[in-house]
């Protein structure tokens, strides 16, 4: 991997190659996602004056937070050579359980901050437990992650529909009013989802770069046998990646529930694909071995911005939104991968 990158930098043409070997640090592989993001921001600002307004920036960042928080966890799973298709359904299920738990706690505890804190705890535990079940089936029972999480995706989706009896689970109205500021407000005018997203991203980046956990994930993803011989506790690390992702789904749910105060069978549909796409756009290798948390953050922002710009600009038929998204996603990846094709 690293060798391939060095080669890529050397065969580079133009200013990069002419400069006295800055190598690796500045190449398209790293800059690709950032360039794409910068281009989108420039395009958005050009098309609409309100694009860079505080309100719109806040909106885009806050709505990116759910998938963003999940994508950070997904980066570790994919880096370790796994995949998790269940996160969207898991988020819906966790949201459903959280709402039911909070509604049930109103009777004994009343409409209070305590009820909400307990509800948040339920969300975290549900997410963690769901992630651990995935992890156990993959790491201990050794079933392919694709199959385990595909199965789990169906299970959580139908459990949510069943819990809601085909309709919508809604949080008690007064409790919702109390809980609402968790999505809409925050210190210094920055809403909580943005802060939590930033915190999760920073911690994730540190864990990936500087902590043994991140290195172990990359080692397992690159070559499981070698990792095993290098005394990496493969099963435990692999289990931990899914548990961490589950926990982060719980965190995302805590931010999601106060937004609309409801969950239904159509909550979180396709979040898993958006999260996976964001991770890959950011430069993480889908087959594992190399992960980049900040890249996933950039990837999520790219995906959200495309939607936002299409809505703000409405220059093309809305029927084509999906096509434009698809093209931009592929372009963002092509930008960073074109050097690799030569290897």
């Amino acid at each position: 991997m690293t060798a391939a990158q060095t080669d890529a930098a050397q065969t580079d043409t133009g200013p990069t190659a002419a400069a006295p070997r800055p190598r690796r640090r500045i190449n398209l592989h790293v800059l690709g996602p950032i360039l794409a993001l910068a281009a989108l921001i420039a395009l958005g600002a050009f098309l609409n004056d309100n694009f860079l307004s505080a309100g719109n920036v806040q909106n885009v960042l806050a709505r990116s937070a759910f998938i963003g928080i999940i994508a950070v966890g997904m980066t570790f799973v994919i880096t370790a050579g796994g995949i998790d298709l269940s996160v969207g359904s898991m988020a819906a299920f966790t949201a459903g359980i959280t709402i039911l738990a909070m509604n049930a706690m109103i009777e004994p505890l009343g409409v209070s901050v305590f009820t909400i804190v307990l509800g948040m705890l339920v969300a975290l535990l549900t997410g963690l437990a769901a992630g651990m079940v995935n992890g156990a089936l993959i790491a201990r029972v050794r079933i392919e992650p694709f199959i385990v999480t595909l199965g789990a995706m169906g299970v959580y989706r139908s459990l949510t529909t069943w819990l809601a009896d085909g309709g919508t689970l809604s949080l008690n109205f007064e409790l919702r009013s109390l809980y609402r500021p968790v999505y809409y407000d925050g210190p210094f005018g920055i809403s909580w989802p943005i802060l939590v997203f930033a915190l999760v991203a920073i911690l994730g980046e540190l864990a990936m770069r500087s902590a043994p956990f991140g290195r172990h994930c990359a080692a397992i993803g690159a070559n499981e046998q070698v990792a095993r011989y290098s005394a990496v506790r493969v099963d435990r690390v692999r289990m931990a990646t899914y548990a961490l992702l589950g926990l982060l789904v719980g965190v995302a749910t805590i931010m999601y529930v106060p937004r609309l105060g409801s969950a239904s069978g159509s909550t979180g549909v396709l979040w898993e694909l958006e999260a996976i796409a964001a991770v890959i756009i950011g430069g993480t290798v889908l087959k594992g071995g190399f992960g980049r948390v900040w890249g996933a953050v950039v990837g999520v922002l790219i995906l959200s911005l495309i939607d936002n710009i299409l809505n703000l600009a409405s220059i093309v038929s809305p029927y084509l939104n999906g096509a434009i998204q698809g093209v931009i996603v592929i372009l963002a990846v092509v930008l960073q991968r074109e050097r690799k094709a030569e290897d």
Partner: peptide, 21 residues
């Protein structure tokens, strides 16, 4: 006119953008 896909979350995002615009 934009597609909200008969979905609460999508409609929320689209409406936020309409309001900015």
């Amino acid at each position: 006119m934009q597609h909200g896909n008969w979905n609460r979350d999508d409609a929320f995002n689209v409406m936020q953008d309409f309001l900015s615009k």
